[in-house]
């Protein structure tokens, strides 16, 4: 029944971020609970709303009515008791069902081969660190899919470098806030490969709107390959690419390195996203912009034109430097 309801809802309102299209256990158990709560509230709505409608039509004043006031009824203990006790029973039922889902999600035992990822929210981008794997990336989270028979969920340890943020990928799980000076956890176990979208759900400043989330769920093999690639420091072969080689020199001698890291080089800044494998990402600017050479060039020239309020300043580079830095960055696979 849940499945047919789900399809009916999806037919009316289709979205890649619908909470009625769950693809992981936490989202699925929230969905199950939501169906229960929705059916109970719908029943209450139909009952009480129907009574209201009936009363308003049935007891309206009619021109044929006499001038006498209707009978004054001051109350009835039996009736009032019944509409106190019945709601209490409904509340108890809903409370117990809710508690079960809370415990299933928040107190679920952590499997030994769960993947750990540290998520750090920044104004206005996401930092992902895989502590046991030595991988650092930004804005695009890669996780393995989880087989229900042999679960390999991903546990996210969430904190923030500045203001409050919230991690919300509706098809995978409900949201959990990223709060500075505090560590929160949540877990996801997407069961089929694909790209799951979401975005920051706690107002965090000017560009809260363009702090998008992209979660790539991959088969175990693809995920292992991705990890392997990310673990290598960026050692692009620049011998045949004079522009990129020059771009590297300009990059390493400009203020870029104060905020950005390119592993294996002097660029070790941590204020902005890690660029070691920038060219392997689909998007820049934390999601809203496709990662093409032209977009990248425009972004470096004037980040504010694409994301007004972004903290990355325009470096006022000349056209030549822009070209060569773009050429260099596009080699960082």
């Amino acid at each position: 029944m849940y499945n047919s309801t789900r399809l009916a809802i999806l037919g009316v309102a289709h979205s890649p971020t619908s909470i009625f299209d769950p693809a992981a256990t936490p989202a699925r158990s929230a969905f199950g609970l939501s169906m229960l709560v929705l059916s109970v509230t719908l029943a209450i709505f139909l009952t009480v709303g129907g009574m209201l409608l009936y009363a308003v039509i049935r007891f309206r004043q009619r021109p044929t009515d006499s001038d006498r006031e209707p009978a004054q009824i001051y109350g009835s203990n039996q009736i009032e008791l019944s509409w106190t006790v019945i709601p209490i029973l409904i509340v108890v039922m809903l409370f117990l069902s809710t508690t079960r889902v809370i415990l299933d999600t928040q107190a679920a035992p952590k499997p030994s081969d769960a993947l750990n990822v540290t998520v750090i929210g920044h104004q206005f981008w996401w930092e992902y660190r895989y502590p046991k794997l030595g991988v650092v990336t930004a804005n695009e989270l890669h996780v393995p899919i989880s087989d229900p028979a042999k679960p390999t969920p991903t546990y996210l340890a969430l904190s923030s470098a500045d203001t409050d943020h919230s991690f919300w990928v509706p098809r995978l799980a409900g949201k959990t806030d990223l709060i500075p000076n505090r560590l929160n956890t949540m877990w996801i176990d997407p069961q089929s490969p694909g790209l799951y979208l979401g975005q920051c759900a706690q107002y965090c400043g000017t560009q809260h709107a363009k702090m998008l989330l992209r979660v790539y769920a991959q088969s175990p093999e693809d995920f292992a390959a991705w990890i392997k690639q990310q673990q290598r420091p960026a050692e692009p072969d620049l011998s045949g690419n004079a522009a990129a080689a020059e771009g590297q020199t300009v990059f390493m001698h400009s203020a870029c390195i104060n905020c950005h890291t390119v592993a294996g080089t002097v660029a070790t800044g941590r204020f902005g996203p890690d660029l070691t494998h920038l060219a392997s990402r689909d998007t820049i600017a934390s999601g809203p912009v496709q990662n093409t050479a032209e977009n990248l060039r425009q972004w470096i020239a004037d980040p504010n034109s694409m994301k007004p309020g972004v903290l990355m300043p325009s470096m006022h580079l000349n056209d030549h430097d822009l070209d060569v830095i773009t050429a260099y960055l596009t080699t960082l696979h």
């Binding site: 909470i19 209201l52 069902s97 509706p170 759900a201």
Partner: peptide, 29 residues
């Protein structure tokens, strides 16, 4: 009369929001 109808709906969406796991999806949306 409009108040009665609308407050009924508001109360029922409030019950939805009170179920924490449902709320994890709905809050701040």
């Amino acid at each position: 009369i409009a108040f009665l109808f609308q407050f009924l709906v508001a109360g029922l969406t409030g019950i939805m929001l009170s179920a924490a796991p449902f709320n994890w999806q709905l809050s701040a949306s």
